[in-house]
Nucleic acid binder design. Sequence first.
DNA 1: AGTTTTGTTGATTGACGAGTCAATAAACTT
DNA 2: AAGTTTATTGACTCGTCAATCAACAAAACT
Lengths: 193, 193
Amino acid sequence: MPKLGMEPIRKAALVNATIVELGRSGSLDVTVSQIAKRAGMSSALAHHYFGSKEDMFLAAMRHILSLYGAEVRGALALASGPEQRVRAILAASFSASNFRRETIGAWLNFWVLSQTVPEARRLHGIYQRRLSSNLRSCLRPLVGDRAEIVATGMGALIDGIYLREALRGGTPDSAGAVKLALDHLLVELAART
Amino acid sequence: MPKLGMEPIRKAALVNATIVELGRSGSLDVTVSQIAKRAGMSSALAHHYFGSKEDMFLAAMRHILSLYGAEVRGALALASGPEQRVRAILAASFSASNFRRETIGAWLNFWVLSQTVPEARRLHGIYQRRLSSNLRSCLRPLVGDRAEIVATGMGALIDGIYLREALRGGTPDSAGAVKLALDHLLVELAART
DNA sequence: AGTTTTGTTGATTGACGAGTCAATAAACTT
DNA sequence: AAGTTTATTGACTCGTCAATCAACAAAACT
């Protein structure tokens, strides 16, 4: 009983299942069958919609990055003034929707993927440059010349917090993460007499 | 022409080759044959000395952690006063011997391994707790109550810097890394009027 | 009614790789 | 000299998995 217009639905289900499986297994060694099963279809169908396993990984990565980007943009639109803007970026980075077990686990795998798959590296590069540029532009009015180094540090700190959360297991601590990153900012502002 | 007493030599060669291959390939999908070849022996011999591929990974991880631990201990022994001690930990973390391409690449893989292999998780936990405790004890005299949060932030920052370096490619920038982490400390001290 | 397009899967192929085994050889032991 | 231990490997087994194929089903188009 094949209903038409299945493609987008199936693809979305697969992307979702890929993220869940990546997060669950904690490694790229997930089989197409596992993903397909979780998405409620045969592995052959998964191959039908995405050409290869790698394509599924990349689609999942694009999905996560695009959600993250949208959330940051949304938060920035509502923020007024540089400090509020930095806060908005941090809040978005650790928001309940981005800072979930599966998503965090998926990130760890994307980092690994970026080491071998050029397209993954490219996507990750885009994300990192945009984050960096966003941070710099908010920080310049706040810390002037130090914007460059503070932005770099804050970017690394965010990645580090993600990494630690990935390894920690258990429910992610959104509040704690924001607090940690925010602390960095506040101290930086306080030091500027 | 089998010379006796080969075991430690072969094992060391394999551990080394494992680290190199992990760093080179950037993923855990290295074959035992690749590792064995790089170490100049057959894959059967590798299996003879280590029971399984997992054992090789774990041995490599232990090796890196033990080198790191030794370096930190050595640096701490020479440092006098809390600030010098924090500096010593940072310098050791990004020292030329620890902050090399292969080692950094290997770290990324250990993080992944820790997600699935209990023993890897255990080893990583030990490392993290020790780092955390070292940082706290140096920081308490410097920032008092804030030692806890500053130590956590600094730990995450160190991991984040490693991560970014792993993804960046090219020769690792030791000096830049130390500068970034040190900056965090100095600002923290400066903020404490 | 018949053809094309879209959805779907079970079965199969083909490659690859971890781990085992049997065999060979040099060194030590008694 | 005979037997044991250590070193070493090529060949083999066995499982797994990505990717393909052939076939079937239902909707849409003509």
